[in-house]
């Protein structure tokens, strides 16, 4: 808006500018404060910190690899399970369901995103974990038990449970972004495909192809959420710093390591190591989110220029 040159304008602008600046300052402060606290650990363990396999605070031995492994594996399981379901829901809502049905269903999917993490954790402990112990686990073992992934004892608490809970939690997020992306694809493309005799599904595939980078953005955004998800994972993953082949074994992630151990880290080097691994998590999620945003923005730009062309 144009400046009218009065004194009030300058004051007002300065106030709202300061508020906007504070968002950047918060992020800068988070990085600065965490970096400063992580320095003792960085100096002592160097880059080997990220590749160490042993985590024994009592012996001052800190290796982050089990947690990086657990974070990556649980997130990958979540994505594998969530991507087809999220795409299916989004396609159903945008391409198939009549508005009258689509709206309430879309709202219900959004409600899934409003449920707090700790509640997913509670549900995971008392509903999902027994379900995996009694039914899903034995079934997987009977059908795919020749793979090392599905061998060993099934307690219901472990990597697989964490992955499934994460999948449920990121599905509404991926769905909602894919919906926006599909809605941004110009209607003329669908009409053109249908006019050429394509079936509804073939038309959908063409729409998906045009929205590909936006869908990729949605998936990366879901990945970012899965990587940083804390409480629900902490409650069902078993919090054991090991790298096991079996998905039934307990594991740990960076976020749940922090949630479960930060309060009891009394000596300086232990806390410093925890903050260093937290800084890694922060930087990774920040970059993943930035990448997702770039991908999603590229779709918005493309469809805008298509509209103007």
């Amino acid at each position: 808006m144009a400046n009218t040159g009065t004194k009030g304008d300058k004051v007002f602008q300065a106030i709202v500018f300061a508020a906007a600046l504070s968002i950047i300052l918060i992020v800068a402060a988070v990085i600065a404060v965490m970096y400063q606290s992580a320095v003792p650990s960085m100096e002592r363990f160097g880059i080997g910190f990220l590749f160490g396999r042993e985590w024994k605070p009592a012996q001052e031995e800190f290796g982050a690899l089990p947690f990086i492994f657990g974070t990556v594996t649980s997130s990958v399981i979540a994505l594998i399970l969530s991507i087809p379901i999220s795409l299916g829901i989004a396609i159903f809502l945008v391409e198939q369901a009549p508005k009258k049905i689509a709206r309430p269903i879309a709202f219900m999917v959004e409600l899934l995103a409003a449920i707090p993490s700790v509640v997913y954790g509670l549900w995971g402990i008392f509903v999902l974990a027994p379900l995996i112990r009694e039914y899903i686990g034995p079934f997987l073992q009977a059908s795919l038990g020749f793979l090392p992934l599905f061998q060993g004892r099934i307690t219901g608490i472990g990597m697989l449970t964490a992955g499934i809970i994460l999948a449920l939690m990121i599905t509404p997020i991926i769905t909602s972004v894919v919906r926006d992306v599909l809605e941004a694809v110009p209607h003329t493309q669908r009409e053109a495909a249908l006019a050429l005799g394509a079936t509804k599904w073939e038309t959908t595939m063409i729409v998906l192809g045009n929205a590909a980078s936006g869908i990729a953005g949605a998936v990366v955004l879901g990945l970012g959420r899965a990587v940083g998800e804390t409480m629900a994972v902490t409650m069902v993953i078993g919090n054991s710093p090991q790298i096991a082949a079996s998905l039934f074994e307990p594991a740990n992630t960076i976020a749940s390591l922090l949630a479960a151990n930060f309060a009891e880290a009394t000596d300086e080097i232990y806390m410093s190591a925890l903050i260093e691994i937290g800084l890694v998590l922060f930087l990774v999620t920040f970059m993943v989110n930035a990448f997702a945003k770039l991908l999603i923005m590229s779709v918005a730009r493309k469809t805008n220029s298509a509209k103007h062309a």
Binding site: I23, I26, V27, V30, V33, T230, I275, F282, T285, F286
Partner: peptide, 24 residues
């Protein structure tokens, strides 16, 4: 820039904010 940073901050795990406030 603010928009971009705000959107990425929304996706930062909340436990990181907990650690930040703890040290601060």
């Amino acid at each position: 820039t603010v928009r971009f940073v705000a959107d990425t901050l929304i996706g930062v795990p909340s436990i990181i904010i907990g650690i930040f406030v703890y040290t601060l």
